[in-house]
Design a protein around this nucleic acid. Structure first.
Lengths: 193, 193
DNA sequence: TAAGATGCGGACCCGCGGTCCGTTTCACCG
DNA sequence: CGGTGAAACGGACCGCGGGTCCGCATCTTA
């Protein structure tokens, strides 16, 4: 039962692997041509170390994603409005979606890796569940909105990494994308009949 | 220049491969554990034949998907209302989305295969472009709707194969899913300023 | 500093998508 | 028909990438 502290070199290597993966994913266009062996080499580590630390490719990607997501998660869980709790749903919902969109724009390659390589569909990841639950409960505070559960799924689908990537590839600029998402969200929310 | 008719065995084999792939995808849960060799074996054909006919895995999946999609495509292009042309946009948009949803429910495994294995993201496929363009132009006929382009993307994202699969896996029944999608769509469309 | 526990790493394995080429089958023609 | 060139066949083969294994190095504790 007594928790034994992990060895120092192990901890250092875990960090080195994360950093290497981050660098490589950021550098390459297609996440699938960053190989596990590449990451190990970049981190100056053997493949065995990498797999022992994170289990498999999906695990590594999830860990990296989770680390990047942490500030946003904290801002949402205990930060000030409009992201934090205690905000009017009609204001918080667009803020949440905008935050997710910005995050995906800022970490395109990583988000793509998570949603494609990362163990099939994004719906298996626990991150998705977290976002979905938060958005659903927030939506349930919107008067006149019947099905917050499905609405949360649908709105999150509008900011999926590959859609964002597709639009970006068509030349849609960051601010334009944010504006379009905001408009879409507003129309949906504003339909309080 | 003179078009030479393809050999009869070649044509038969092409069909056999499609049928085999269809059967295997329908039978298995995860599309990625249907192997090219499996398909060739099921069709009673060598792998070479399979690859000569369809180029690669993505090509085979696209061909199969396209064949399945044909009736729906025709109903949309030249069928009667509410799917066909000449329908009031406020009626046609939900009809189109419902039709896509039903299609994905009826061909879950195939749709999943297309949107995951099928060459990365669904946004590379020409099918997507077809649906998007149709939905966009239809949406542009809705009074007061500014950004039909993004709306089309967002609404189509709500019927993506893996989301449908996720909901189905949570026990959401077919009719329930159709109703929820219809409600979501209606709320969005109904927000006529 | 000795000893046990923990982590290391890269050679190795396996399965899969895709290719290659000697062999077979078809379509056309005399 | 029987012959002939072209087209298609099929399965052995290849390369690559994820994941494993185990003898060896390194850390920790007493």
């Amino acid at each position: 039962m007594a928790e034994r502290r992990p060895r120092k070199d192990a901890e250092r290597n875990r960090a080195a692997v994360l950093a290497a993966a981050d660098a490589l994913f950021a550098r390459c266009e297609r996440p699938e041509d960053v190989t596990m062996a590449d990451i190990a080499a970049e981190a100056g580590v053997g493949k065995g170390t990498l797999f022992r630390a994170y289990g498999d490719r999906a695990g590594l990607i999830r860990a990296l994603y989770s680390a990047k997501l942490r500030p946003l998660r904290e801002a949402v869980e205990e930060g000030p409005p409009p992201l934090g709790p205690g905000t009017d749903p009609l204001e918080r919902v667009p803020a949440l979606l905008d935050a997710v969109l910005r995050f995906k724009l800022d970490h395109r390659h990583l988000a793509l890796a998570l949603e494609s390589d990362g163990g099939g569909s994004p719906y298996g990841a626990e991150h998705y569940d977290r976002w979905h639950t938060l958005l659903r409960t927030t939506l349930e505070g919107v008067p006149g909105l019947a099905d917050g559960d499905f609405a949360a799924h649908a709105l999150l689908a509008a900011v999926r990494a590959d859609l964002v990537e597709h639009l970006a590839g068509q030349g849609v600029a960051r601010e334009a994308m944010r504006a379009r998402l905001a408009q879409f969200t507003a129309r949906f929310l504003g339909a309080g009949h």
